[in-house]
């Protein structure tokens, strides 16, 4: 073939519309979510930078003050500053949320990979185990773990992680089964790539990307669950400033001093929303390509 012909094809092919890439401005909500998560990060790493006073300083004279300029979120029954306690509790709450999610994901990944690659018998076995775990309400499963291992923040974390694992496992299995029969995995096989390479480069990344969003949702969920356990007195113990424990401690004064429960609750809600929005924004970017 002649070079001229070649050049003509090039012109034709590039004449097919190559639309310019669009770089979209981040949405306002995303900016807010980033700011909030950044604030949480600071509160986790160096809470003393953002709190206004020692979260455990007792001042009986200041008990039950409603929110004001001096005490942004008010004070509790011992006169401790609620804002500073919320900040102090960030590290514990986030740690519980994130580690519980990671535990759930890791366990789910193991179960999911086993089910989708371990052959028919293992798939059947893992499937039934997942179903049995599903049959228990999540919190009940967590309670079971705590009964066996005793209360405390570490047990609570593991318990919450365990109870979220079956959900992740089922999704990972479904993803892997779908992707394994996809055309691009077939194309990789045709090229002669080894199963290990296909697993590492195609299967796992594609299976885990959608899980990423789910995991950001899961972090919020895990915080709520851990808070629930703390609320029941099975997780973090007073006077620790964990958000769930604060909710539990404040419930007695719900009618007279609602700020004791409202602000820790708002933090839980805010964190869940912010991580979810971040996760969504990240997947959106991933989907739109570079």
């Amino acid at each position: 073939m002649s070079e001229l012909e070649l050049r003509q094809t090039t012109v034709e092919a590039s004449a097919e519309h190559l639309e310019p890439r669009r770089r979209r401005m981040p949405r306002a909500g995303t900016v807010l979510a980033v700011a909030f998560v950044a604030f949480l990060a600071v509160a986790t790493v160096a809470p003393s930078l953002v709190w206004t006073q020692d979260p455990n300083r007792i001042a009986a004279a200041d008990a039950f003050e409603s929110p004001s300029l001096a005490h942004w979120f008010g004070t509790d029954e011992s006169g401790r500053d609620v804002y500073s306690r919320v900040i102090a509790g960030t590290a514990t709450s986030l740690l519980i949320g994130v580690s519980a999610t990671l535990i759930g994901l890791a366990l789910g990944l193991v179960l999911g990979v086993l089910a989708s690659f371990g052959g028919r018998a293992l798939d059947f076995g893992v499937g039934r185990v997942i179903e049995v775990l599903f049959a228990f309400p999540g919190l009940l499963l967590a309670l079971l773990v705590i009964v066996v291992a005793g209360p405390g923040p570490v047990t609570a974390t593991i318990a919450v992680g365990l109870s979220t694992a079956p959900g992740y496992a089922r999704i990972i299995r479904g993803q892997l089964v779908g992707i394994r029969s996809s055309h691009y995995v077939e194309a990789a096989r045709v090229l002669g790539h080894s199963p290990g390479r296909i697993l590492a480069r195609h299967l796992l990344p594609n299976a885990l990307v959608p899980l990423f969003v789910l995991a950001t949702l899961g972090v919020g969920q895990a915080i709520v669950w851990a808070a629930a356990l703390s609320y029941l007195g099975l997780g973090a113990q007073p006077p620790a400033a964990e958000w769930g424990a604060m909710l539990a401690a404040g419930r007695t004064y719900l009618a007279t001093a609602p700020w004791l429960t409202v602000f820790p609750g708002l933090m839980i809600v805010g964190t869940t929303i912010a991580t979810t929005m971040l996760g969504r924004a990240l997947t959106r970017r991933g989907r739109e390509g570079r």
């Binding site: 996809s182 055309h183 691009y184 194309a187 990789a188 045709v190 480069r201 594609n206 990307v209």
Partner: peptide
């Protein structure tokens, strides 16, 4: 190999 549906034969990522 070349397939009918080229798009599905590429890893979407």
């Amino acid at each position: 190999a070349i397939y009918q549906d080229a798009l599905s034969s590429f890893d979407p990522r």
